[in-house]
């Protein structure tokens, strides 16, 4: 497989990590705040639907997770299983698509 593809995957994984780092923190802090505050599911939903920032943030979160996770999964498959370039690539693309579909279903529900 070409060096350019590996380079682009490396770049994409680093860039998605840079996006993920603050988003994971925001996600955790928000979750803990919501649970500690004793908010009900309906109250949380009303707040996420009142402000466009939450669907936008989580929409970005899902793209970053799908890219970052798929590239990492591809590396693990290539090193730890008999799968090589094509097989690992196919599984990684399928994983990426699955995360995007499930993620955007969830974002659609809170938007």
């Amino acid at each position: 497989m070409s060096g350019r593809l590996e380079l682009w995957l490396f770049v994409l994984q680093r860039l998605s990590a840079m996006v993920l780092a603050p988003l994971v923190l925001i996600h955790l802090v928000t979750m803990i705040y919501a649970v500690q505050g004793g908010l009900s599911a309906a109250e949380i939903l009303s707040r996420t639907q009142a402000n466009a920032i939450w669907p936008v943030l989580y929409g970005l979160f899902i793209v970053a997770v799908a890219i970052h996770g798929a590239i990492g999964l591809r590396s693990i498959l290539r090193e730890m299983t008999p799968l090589r370039d094509k097989g690992a690539g196919a599984v990684a693309v399928a994983f990426c698509a699955l995360v995007l579909i499930l993620g955007y279903r969830a974002v659609g529900a809170i938007a």
Binding site: G3, R4, L5, E6, L7, L9, F10, R78, D85
Partner: peptide, 12 residues
């Protein structure tokens, strides 16, 4: 750089 940027090179 070209020689080491493959899938068995530095990015692995």
């Amino acid at each position: 750089l070209k020689a080491v940027a493959g899938d068995a090179g530095c990015h692995a």
